[in-house]
Simulated assay, not measured.
Amino acid sequence: MEQHRRSLAKATTYRLFATSVVFIIAFSYTGSFGNAAKIGLSAAIAKTALYYFWERLWSHIRWGIEAE
């Protein structure tokens, strides 16, 4: 089973990558650095928490994991 720290590290690094994509898209639509940053930051916070809990849920599902 994965440790909570590993799940948190995965969620955080993925979110940094994904937030930059959201920021670029938001900036291309709004043309505003401030608005794009607000959209990116709020999406990052919500999605980081959701991803962490999703990852923890899947750590309890044995489907697709082969025994050693």
Rank of each mutant, 00 (worst) to 15 (best):
F23V: 02
W63N: 07
F27E: 04
A18Y: 10
T13Y: 03
R15T: 15
T30H: 05
W54G: 03
G31A: 03
A9R: 06
F53M: 04
K38R: 10
L41P: 06
A46I: 14
F17E: 01
Y29A: 15
F17L: 07
S42I: 06
L41S: 08
Y14C: 12
K10D: 08
Y29K: 07
V21M: 14
I65H: 09
H4I: 10
S42Q: 05
A9M: 09
Y51K: 12
R56H: 06
Y51M: 13
L41C: 04
A43N: 02
A18G: 02
K38F: 11
F33M: 09
E68P: 11
F23S: 02
Y29F: 14
L57A: 12
L57N: 14
S42V: 11
W58H: 13
N35G: 11
V21N: 03
R6H: 03
E55Y: 09
T19G: 01
R6D: 06
Y51W: 05
S59M: 07
S20H: 01
T48F: 15
A18C: 07
R62I: 03
G64H: 06
W58D: 15
K38G: 02
Q3E: 10
F23C: 07
R56D: 02
E66S: 14
E66Q: 12
S59G: 07
M1A: 12
Y14T: 14
S42D: 06
L41V: 05
W54Q: 11
E68S: 08
R5M: 14
S32R: 11
A11M: 01
H4Q: 07
A26E: 00
W54V: 03
A67L: 04
R6A: 13
Y29S: 15
K47P: 00
I65M: 09
Y14P: 00
K38I: 12
V22C: 03
F23T: 08
T48A: 07
